[in-house]
């Protein structure tokens, strides 16, 4: 068994009064572990919020065995989206990203689609575990452009994978033994952020060791930082610390 020691979260729209197209799953006890997630509805098309909510809702209802098999989990979520858009035809192009972690005493299971990100605390830093499914990332992976060259080109947020009726499932799946993920005192701290949040974190990926060691403190600090500067997208975070 593992224990949830501390968690922090926010999920806010870009502007007050505007629809928030992110959806979060706060740490939820499931089997012998916990699941947490962030989905970011793709804003270009109608139904973004509904699809993100649907993805998180269906994820929360899956049994542990299905959660641990990303093919099963994502196929079921995709099916729920396909069924939804059959009825809500004006949302037919809707899509969402989804990144989730399932943590138990043995492993961290990471499943990721899109450009939401999952970080693991290592010392006083956050280590990025996921790789963005974006055009820029693919162009760098293929060594077509360097990061510097891409900085002056648009398309940074153009996704190459998402969950949608129309797209084949393309995901990243990692299983990390709990021992390898442990930081201080046999603890594991995880942070899932939508792009509206991680873009702010990446601009200055530093906080005091005390703040970064406390998911609730981290959450407050990052949210203050975003609000001070002004959000450029909906922004969400779910952070949690577990002990074995």
């Amino acid at each position: 068994m593992i224990t949830l020691l501390n968690c922090g979260a926010f999920s806010c729209s870009k502007e007050d009064g505007r629809e928030n197209q992110d959806s979060v799953l706060l740490p939820q006890s499931k089997g012998n572990g916990y699941i947490l997630a962030v989905a970011d509805g793709v804003g270009s098309y109608e139904g973004a919020k509904e699809i993100a909510d649907l993805a998180v809702y269906n994820l929360s209802r899956l049994v542990v065995d299905d959660v641990l098999d990303p093919n099963v989990a994502l196929s079921q979520i995709k099916k729920s989206i396909t069924d939804y858009v059959k009825i809500n035809t004006h949302h037919v192009k809707a899509a969402t990203t989804l990144s989730y972690c399932y943590v138990d005493a043995d492993n961290l299971h990471i499943v990721h689609v899109g450009d939401t990100r999952i970080y693991l605390k290592v010392g006083d830093k956050l280590k990025l575990l996921t790789k963005d499914h974006t055009q820029h990332q693919e162009l760098m992976d293929e060594k077509i452009y360097t990061k510097k060259e891409l900085s002056s080109l648009d398309g940074k947020n153009t996704l190459t994978s998402a969950i949608s009726k129309w797209l084949d499932l393309k995901f990243q799946h990692l299983v990390i033994p709990f021992e390898e993920a442990m930081d201080n005192h046999d603890e594991v701290s995880l942070f899932i952020m939508s792009d509206g949040a991680h873009s702010f974190w990446e601009k200055r990926p530093r906080l005091s060791i005390n703040t970064i060691s406390s998911p609730s403190g981290f959450s407050s600090s990052l949210m203050r930082r975003i609000l001070r500067v002004g959000a450029d997208d909906d922004f969400s975070l779910v952070a949690a610390k577990f002990k074995r």
């Binding site: 793709v42 270009s44 098309y45 648009d154 153009t158 996704l159 190459t160 129309w166």
Partner: peptide, 15 residues
């Protein structure tokens, strides 16, 4: 145009 940054426009168009 900003169309270049439109979500998955390429993926969907290609499909």
């Amino acid at each position: 145009t900003a169309a270049q940054s439109a979500f998955l426009s390429h993926v969907l168009a290609e499909k």
